[in-house]
Every structure is written in structure tokens, then in C-alpha cells.
């Protein structure tokens, strides 16, 4: 593991990059937590891969996803299916994203980063529950000056999902 200090030696650049990615995480979480999942695909490039998978799969190199979207079109389909065809009990989610680690900044501009996440779920008449603990394995790229995800693997430690996962992590 490489400290960000070695990846981006200049303090000002490091601050700027950290701030930019942290602001990205905040905006991403806000969109989902506010229930505005139609905005969720906008955080990705057109050819992005998005996958939510258990740590047992990730550790063994198994490709399955709980959600598996190969490209932004499939993400938009997921959103439409969730909003228009899927029957489920109303719920609130809240994402807590921390421990940002920027591991690699490639010459062509791609940034490999990780962050821990907790997702807390509240069903209307039930106690709030810790729904999922995991970490993001991200690849960011810059498009028109803006960071976008080209790859996001949400790898969860809590292998047993309580009932169902409705919204993206």
C-alpha cells in the first residue's frame, strides 16, 4: 500500500485531490440517500462497470454481483426497474463514507482509490439497522474536468443481506 504522500508528493495537489474525491463521495451519497436515484448513473462514465459483491466473492476472484451493471445504460435500466416495476416496502438509506485512500494516480489520469462505507437502513416501523459494511474499490477518470467513476466495486463484509437490497450502494 502506498501512502498518498508518495503518490502525490506536493501538499497542495494532495489537498485538492482529496477534497475533490471526498466531495464526489458526499454528492454520490446524497443522491442515493435523498432517494434521487435517477441521478445515480451520472456519477459514472458511459462504459463504467458497477458491481456490489460480497467479500467472499471478491477474495476468490469470482465475478458475480448482487447488482451488476455493465455500462451506464444498464444503470439507467436498473433505476427504471427499481422505480417503475419493483414492489418493496418504503425505506430510507444513509451512507457513511470514510477512510479515503488514494492508491495510484496513473499517467493517463486514472485514479485508483478506496474508501470504507457503512450503509444504515431504516424501514418505516422498524429500528434502524446497520445494513452493510464494506469498502469501495474505485477507478476515477476525468471527463470535461469532472471526476467520474469508470469502475466501482462495492465489496461488503456483511455477507448476509437482511432480506433485500433495493437501492445502489
Amino acid at each position: 500500500m502506498t501512502a498518498l504522500r508518495n503518490v502525490v508528493p506536493r501538499l497542495e495537489e494532495r489537498w485538492a485531490l482529496r477534497l475533490e474525491i471526498e466531495e464526489f463521495h458526499v454528492a454520490y451519497a446524497q443522491a442515493i440517500d435523498a432517494g434521487e436515484i435517477t441521478r445515480w448513473p451520472d456519477f459514472f462514465t458511459d462504459d463504467a462497470l458497477y458491481r456490489v459483491t460480497g467479500r467472499d466473492n471478491a477474495d476468490r476472484g469470482l465475478p458475480l454481483g448482487l447488482l451488476y451493471c455493465d455500462g451506464k445504460k444498464m444503470m439507467r435500466d436498473r433505476v427504471q426497474a427499481t422505480l417503475r416495476t419493483t414492489t418493496f416496502e418504503p425505506r430510507f438509506l444513509r451512507h457513511y463514507i470514510s477512510n479515503l485512500s488514494i492508491d495510484e494516480v496513473r499517467a493517463e489520469g486514472a485514479i485508483k482509490a478506496r474508501a470504507n462505507y457503512l450503509v444504515v437502513q431504516t424501514l418505516m416501523e422498524e429500528k434502524t439497522e446497520l445494513f452493510q459494511a464494506g469498502h469501495y474499490q474505485d477507478t476515477f477518470v476525468r471527463r470535461d474536468g469532472r471526476l467520474l467513476l469508470r469502475e466501482r466495486h462495492c465489496v461488503y463484509d456483511s455477507l448476509t443481506i437482511p432480506n433485500a437490497l433495493i437501492y445502489p450502494i
Binding site: L66, M74, T87, I161, A164
Partner: peptide, 18 residues
């Protein structure tokens, strides 16, 4: 892998059965 979105704990159909 793409069609696995239909089933399972987050599947378009799986969610509803659960």
C-alpha cells in the same frame, strides 16, 4: 452476470419475493 440482476437478494424479481 448481466442477467443475474433478475434474481437474488437485489434481483428485479428476487426483491419482490423476499
Amino acid at each position: 452476470l448481466c442477467q443475474s440482476n433478475l434474481m437474488g437478494p437485489a434481483g428485479f424479481l428476487g426483491i419482490e419475493d423476499n
